[in-house]
Design a protein around this nucleic acid. Structure first.
Length: 269
DNA sequence: GAATATGTTTAAAT
DNA sequence: CATTTAAACATATT
């Protein structure tokens, strides 16, 4: 048997996928020692290959967490490796005896011979040792008051604000659409024109949509290391014609990104 | 083979 | 000056 995809889909990984990923990796490799780290592409590293190997090899992996759109690998001695998969990054299960998958950037081999490889055909995935603390709130951690204050001071479109990683971390193009449909707010709405009642509803929709997606993806694939992760989009996707409630789905470009929404969503401007 | 997909960075416009 | 908008980048897939 060859290598197996842990994760693959047409679009890139977003917050729920990364959360499921972190859980799978933790379950699989927690407590194991990283015996060998192979670096096939070092340009995005914030230190040399030799330095990274020296920092991480022969250390135990304690856990893998998600933060914003990154994974955080917590090793012994408080060594943390951040990993952003960017547009096309994927994780693949690998074994010492198998050849590396195509487009491999990093390969982690743990005690026992099993491990995983990070691949990226665009070579944009970015590993960062000891990533600096990020003060921008995570989409699943932000408080309601913080969120309401954020909306009040921004006058760009709500879709662009939700995706702005300098304002709120973790939401990408597809879940941005899903969240706005759930709240029945048009993506073209101006952030500071959304009334407080609807802003509160939007706040609730963020955690509702993201946590439900985590549950759905976990149920579909969370116990297996193989296979493809499906998504469960209700409105975002060129192939979807009607929302679950039967409205026609419209398509526009917002911030240069394909945006899908319906007339069920109210425009505040 | 042109169009589509999208996160971030950098440049330009308001 | 601060904020917002647009363009550029890259390539597998439709």
């Amino acid at each position: 048997m060859g290598n197996q995809k842990i994760f693959k889909r047409l679009t890139m990984a977003e917050l729920p996928d990364l959360s499921v990923f972190a859980n799978i990796l933790t379950r699989r490799f927690k407590g194991k020692t990283l015996k060998r780290l192979e670096v096939k592409y070092a340009k995005k590293l914030n230190l040399t290959t030799a330095e990274l190997q020296k920092e991480l090899e022969n250390k135990k992996l304690n856990k893998v967490l998600r933060s914003g759109k990154t994974l955080q690998f917590h090793f012994e001695k408080d060594k943390i490796l951040g990993l952003h998969l960017m547009l096309r990054g994927e994780l693949n299960a690998v074994s010492e005896k198998d050849p590396l998958p195509k487009y491999t950037i990093l390969a982690f081999y743990f005690s026992g011979g099993e491990g995983f490889a990070v691949t990226d055909s665009l070579k944009q995935a970015t590993p960062t040792l000891s990533p600096p603390e990020n003060k921008v709130p995570d989409a699943l951690d932000i408080t309601e008051n913080e969120f309401l204050a954020l909306l009040k001071k921004k006058k760009k479109s709500i879709k662009e604000l939700l995706m702005d990683q300098k304002a709120l971390r973790g939401i990408g193009n597809s879940y941005g659409d899903e969240i706005l449909w759930e709240a029945r707010i048009s993506p073209l709405s101006v952030a500071n024109k959304i009334p407080e009642k609807q802003a509160r509803l939007l706040y609730e929709s963020i955690s509702k949509v993201l946590n439900q997606a985590i549950k759905d993806i976990t149920k579909e694939n969370g116990n297996e290391l193989t296979g493809e992760l499906r998504d469960f989009m209700k409105v975002h996707g060129a192939h979807i014609r009607k929302s679950p409630t039967g409205a026609n789905i419209k398509s526009d470009k917002i911030g240069g990104r394909s945006t899908y929404y319906t007339d069920e969503q109210h425009l505040y401007s």
